[in-house]
Design a protein around this nucleic acid. Structure first.
Lengths: 204, 204
DNA sequence: CAGAAAATGGACCGGCAAGTCCACCCCGGG
DNA sequence: CCCGGGGTGGACTTGCCGGTCCATTTTCTG
């Protein structure tokens, strides 16, 4: 039963997912038990298994979906409207701010470790998130091209892939070291690469 | 007792670390037990605790150190001699090849999940690995500068940080999606950015 | 206001895996 | 030869935690 039948049921299910997401962010997947989630969400063991019959894995997968959705939502509306240098700059700051606030928690990354990267469900979630994210970056780059701010010859697919990789890596490094230098460098380098398609390079 | 007293002891300890690293890569941290490691290494429970008195965490940390060392070793000698476009290209291929061969295993990443990113020991390992890696990239960029292949005005610190982030992210994405496109894009973009400091941009 | 279906509470079970313990082995030195 | 200590084997303990079960309450429907 993935969908609850009544409004109350749906509310409870949502409460479980959101509460579980909180606990997981705080404690980390490896150290979170169903009892922790039960406590936080004010539910009982039977409810957990009522709404997630396949047990912990199913619940974790639902949390992963929930977190994946948040990732892109948290970057809106900037990410959806990257049609000027100003909006790119704003988005860049937003990303840095979001992840610095998040600190060393990587709900999504850790979630898949536990469930298993290769499991059909989990891989689909990341793949889809990456696809959408890159898509929006690519849209932004094409918007710049349309306005003549970026050379039409730019390989948008490659540039957006590289920028996305830089973000992921920057975040990953920040998780481990607590330092956001790399994230900022990756964002700035990615945007600078766009600019460089029009500007003259340093002639030195 | 972190160091064994006799040669035999030291050999056993090394066998444990290497064997554990193998098992962890195959099964993943979350699904590996001390008994798995015991089987693989042909040792007994008491030996595990004899050489790693603090238990599983201490062992995992040792494996993390072991794996961290491998990361840079596997990129040698190319990584240590990035003084021409050819050597950069060779290194780029080496990185792609190494991680494609590794597939969806990320021994290091997962290890820290289990031990806890923030634990003093584990954070130090990643930080040091990142520092050395970036250092070697930066050295390579300066070598290009010295030969006049890259503009002296290039901010090596920022460029190396961005490239490192791109690699990390590219690898991370490949782990989750099985696709090395992003890794290649990040590497190529990073190197192209170096070239672009000298070449004229596409005038389109 | 039934009666069914959904939702909830929480005691209980069972297995697994980390960690303990002690007996034994092996080898080098005196 | 024996003795001491590092090295080894593996049975055993222990606690945790995912998962089960059933009794009870609440909510929908006619």
């Amino acid at each position: 039963m993935t969908q609850a039948a009544t409004a109350k049921g749906r509310a409870t299910r949502a409460r479980i997912v959101e509460g579980a997401a909180e606990v997981l962010r705080e404690r980390g997947v490896a150290f979170t038990t169903l009892d922790d989630i039960r406590d936080r969400t004010g539910t009982s063991k039977s409810q957990l298994f009522h709404y997630f019959p396949d047990g912990k894995d199913e619940l974790l997968l639902s949390v992963a979906r929930f977190e994946a959705d948040r990732v892109l939502e948290d970057q809106q509306p900037q990410l959806g409207r990257l049609d000027s240098w100003e909006s790119w700059a704003q988005w860049r700051d937003l990303v840095v701010e979001r992840y610095e606030r998040q600190g060393d928690q990587c709900p999504l990354g850790s979630l898949f470790l536990q469930v298993g990267r290769s499991r059909p469900g989990s891989r689909a979630i990341v793949t889809e998130l990456m696809r959408q994210w890159q898509q929006q970056l690519a849209d932004g780059m094409r918007a710049l091209q349309a306005r003549g701010l970026v050379a039409a010859s730019l390989d948008v697919g490659q540039a957006s892939a590289a920028l996305l990789a830089g973000i992921q890596g920057g975040v990953a490094i920040m998780m481990s070291t607590g330092d956001s230098t790399h994230l900022k460098a990756a964002l700035d380098a990615g945007i600078a690469a766009l600019r460089a398609t029009r500007d003259a390079p340093d002639p030195g």
